[in-house]
Simulated assay, not measured.
Amino acid sequence: MTGSLPIAAQVDLRRQPVEDVLARVEQALHVRLDRHALVRKRRSLGSRTEQGTWVRIERRGFERIGPQGWNGTEAAAVLQGVTMPEWYQGVAWRERGEPVMWRADELELMTSPSVGRSALVLDDPGLPDAWWEALNGSLDALAAQRTPRLATPDTVTITQEQVTQTLAEAFPGLADTEIERWAPAHADLTWANVMGPEFSIIDWEDWGMAPRGLDAATLWGNALAVPTLADRVRQERRADLESRDGKLMSLFFLSKIVGSSSYEGDPLLAPARSEAERLVGELQPTPGR
């Protein structure tokens, strides 16, 4: 994104009046939203409909929308072999007088809840083997496909320059941070975006090409407070996480935990520091070679 774009005012949808937005979505998509079960997050809303579907609504500033547009959920509908909600229809509009876009997508309603109430988990969810088989099948199928889209984790387009800068700031001892392989990724594979015990992956607005291992590293990193779960992720996604790119992506994730914005109350901090030390050591060239 260029620096000339105006910056949208920050709005927290958990506290902002949203009735006008809900009414507009209902009229555009010809649905009735369940106000009593409305899920409100900082920049998104979600609700069941009377038709037994799910509608996700998001507000995003122009500075967070790249040239590829902002239709990731719709674009993901063509992916083959990935377990996700079926996409039915969508609508987007500009907030009048503001550098802000709104988007609403109507999707299949998943019967299982999110594995985690937030990005990370603090207890082992006890997922069945079939769940892990479905995870592996979906991530392998996703990585085998091709797309002109670029992933936007945390709504920021991921690039080699960004990876290099992020890792240099957090781990200045790393000599080589060049990514060797890029592949399609969900780009926000947290425990809040995977359902269980019946597996599926939700929230595809930021998917696209990314360094190999980004998704595995994100899921693994958000499980570090539960060692048995983190170990299971490493076991299941070993090929990704033990690759050089996967190690770099693991450090890319860990940089958010152990970097300048770290805080001592974070349940991920202690294991993240230990894992970061291990990974940096593994990526350093052997002396004399």
Rank of each mutant, 00 (worst) to 15 (best):
G3I: 09
A9P: 00
R14Y: 01
P17F: 05
A28M: 06
A28K: 13
H30Y: 01
H30W: 01
L33P: 11
L38H: 09
L45T: 03
R48N: 12
T49L: 10
T53W: 04
T53A: 11
R60S: 11
F62E: 15
G66F: 11
Q68H: 08
Q68W: 08
G69W: 05
A75K: 14
A76D: 07
A77S: 15
M84K: 15
G90R: 12
E95L: 06
L109F: 12
M110S: 05
S114Y: 05
G116W: 02
G116L: 06
D124R: 06
D129F: 00
A130L: 04
G137C: 06
S138G: 04
Q145F: 03
R149E: 14
L150W: 14
T155G: 00
V156A: 00
T157P: 00
T157V: 14
T159I: 07
T159L: 10
V163W: 06
L167N: 04
L167F: 04
A168V: 06
E169K: 14
L174M: 13
I179G: 09
E180P: 00
T190S: 15
W191Y: 06
V194K: 06
M195D: 00
F199W: 02
D203Q: 02
E205Q: 09
G208Q: 03
G221N: 02
R234I: 00
R237F: 14
A239E: 15
A239M: 09
L241W: 05
L241G: 10
E242H: 10
S243I: 05
G246F: 03
S250V: 08
K256M: 12
S261C: 06
S262G: 05
L268G: 04
L269G: 07
L269Q: 07
L269N: 07
A272S: 15
V280H: 10
L283S: 10
Q284G: 10
Q284E: 14
P287R: 12
P287Q: 11
G288N: 08
